[in-house]
């Protein structure tokens, strides 16, 4: 009996926090800051969210592309179609790995930093004092960060894909000796701009939005103590990763599933 009651209470808590998160999102999006003040803030956040995540994205993209080429080569050469390696690498990266792995890296690198930063601002009463100065922290602090995540994520994902394809070419063409013309030719004939590239970009836009939302919300909603901030940071990474993988399945089914 207690178990049932506890389950009910937990479910209500989850629904409640989802409601709070939506309300919070509404508060952030409704108040669009004035362009004159908002733009420099956005630039600053784009720097810390986007540019600072660039290194890890580029390095991971390079290695993932190289590994894909190696693995793909061993499998495809069994069928004598190693020329299809370009197609395989490009499709895997553009459709799946680009958006998903970038989103996971983004949640770990930028999302956790956002949560910790906002949580600390809350713990040191910076958000409260801003509110008392007549400045809405949702607009001033949260909105630029949310938008920065939203904008930076697709850019990072595209850079990831490009670097990955380049890494795959490095291994496939220069090392394993696949003919360069068929590497690119196969790729170009099978990758469609709208269906593959743009759908991949749409995925990363969705992931960027979800990751940034979870990160800023966890920071804003955290218990303002050191234990609270650390658990909020953990939650950001866990929830973002789960949300990205779950959404990826749904989006893939909608975009590429033929039914």
């Amino acid at each position: 009996m207690d178990y049932v009651a506890g389950f009910g209470r937990r479910s209500l808590e989850v629904v409640g926090s989802l409601g709070r998160a939506t309300q919070f999102l509404f508060g952030v999006l409704v108040g669009v800051p004035k362009p004159a003040t908002g733009f420099p803030l956005l630039i600053k956040q784009l720097y810390s969210v986007g540019v600072l995540s660039l290194a890890i994205v580029v390095v991971s993209g390079l290695f993932i592309g190289m590994v894909l080429a190696l693995q793909g080569y061993t499998i495809l050469s069994d069928y004598g179609s190693e020329a299809a390696i370009g197609q395989m690498i490009a499709l895997t990266l553009v459709r799946e790995l680009g958006p998903v792995v970038t989103a996971l890296l983004f949640a770990g690198r930028a999302g956790s930093a956002l949560t910790a930063e906002i949580g600390l601002m809350k713990a040191t009463e910076q958000l409260s004092s801003m509110e008392m100065m007549g400045v809405d922290p949702l607009r001033r602090v949260i909105a630029p960060r949310l938008w920065a995540g939203f904008i930076a994520m697709p850019i990072l994902a595209m850079i990831f894909s490009v670097v990955g394809i380049w890494g795959g070419m490095l291994v496939g063409v220069d090392w394993l000796g696949v003919f360069e013309g068929s590497f690119w030719g196969n790729m170009q004939s099978s990758v469609d701009f709208v269906d593959d590239v743009l759908n991949g970009v749409i995925k990363s836009v969705v992931f960027g939005f979800v990751c940034a939302w979870i990160a800023v919300y966890q920071g804003y909603d955290c218990v303002p103590t050191s234990a609270g901030i650390s658990s909020a940071t953990t939650k950001t990474v866990v929830y973002s990763s789960l949300a990205v993988l779950g959404l990826d399945f749904v989006l893939t089914a909608v975009m590429f599933g033929d039914f």
């Binding site: 009463e125 509110e131 008392m132 007549g134």
Partner: peptide
């Protein structure tokens, strides 16, 4: 609130 000032415990 523009007419109010508040000094927080931690300075904030």
């Amino acid at each position: 609130r523009e007419k109010m000032g508040m000094l927080f415990q931690s300075g904030a």
